[in-house]
Design a protein around this nucleic acid. Structure first.
Lengths: 94, 94
DNA sequence: TAAAAATACTCCATAGGTATTTTAT
DNA sequence: ATAAAATACCTATGGAGTATTTTTA
């Protein structure tokens, strides 16, 4: 079972969307440009959908990319909620 | 950056919750009992929260486990929505 | 030609398997 | 004694890095 939509890839994706560049996203994520490129490529390959149009330096979202960007923000936010929320339950009796 | 809440682990977790057994969950997921045990253990270690109380054969959710089970269903469902939804956008013009 | 992304490798972390041990009924 | 989870060990996949090549503004 391939991960496809895991937090790692989704975070790479939303970061590229926000900053508009693989290279800058890589800096922000403390990764290399190569790693970000792989992550996005992996998403596109396994979804079978192009997320960006590569127009030289400019990175532009496709229609599918725009859709995923919205869903990805939601999913990542849900994950964050879960991660912080569960700490509150750690010492409760069962 | 560790994944922690990725789809693979969350699916293992929700399956165990639903069927009430590591071994049966493993069958359903086409994995081994060992792999499921690792997945759950990984979740617990990285969240720092026990998800199940191991009472011999019976597997019982802790309070934290019950909380995560709800959130996990939501996250997995969001992922599924994203995965199927994006296909509809695949051939749209940008 | 200079920037940004893609790619070819290399390395290592870890997911997953088999076999075995532990544990509670 | 048995059924289920934990664990030790091994292998293989793929995530991430460096270095390089390709691309286009």
């Amino acid at each position: 079972m391939p991960p496809i939509l895991d937090s790692r890839r989704l975070l790479a994706f939303t970061t590229v969307v926000r900053v508009g560049s693989f290279t800058h996203a890589a800096r922000e994520l403390s990764l290399t440009q190569s790693a970000v490129s792989h992550a996005i490529r992996g998403l596109e390959d396994e979804l079978g959908v192009a997320l960006f149009t590569r127009e030289g330096r400019a990175v532009r979202l496709t229609a599918g990319g725009r859709y995923l960007a919205e869903r990805a923000e939601l999913i990542l936010s849900e994950m964050q909620t879960a991660r912080t929320g569960i700490q509150a339950w750690a010492r409760r009796p069962d």
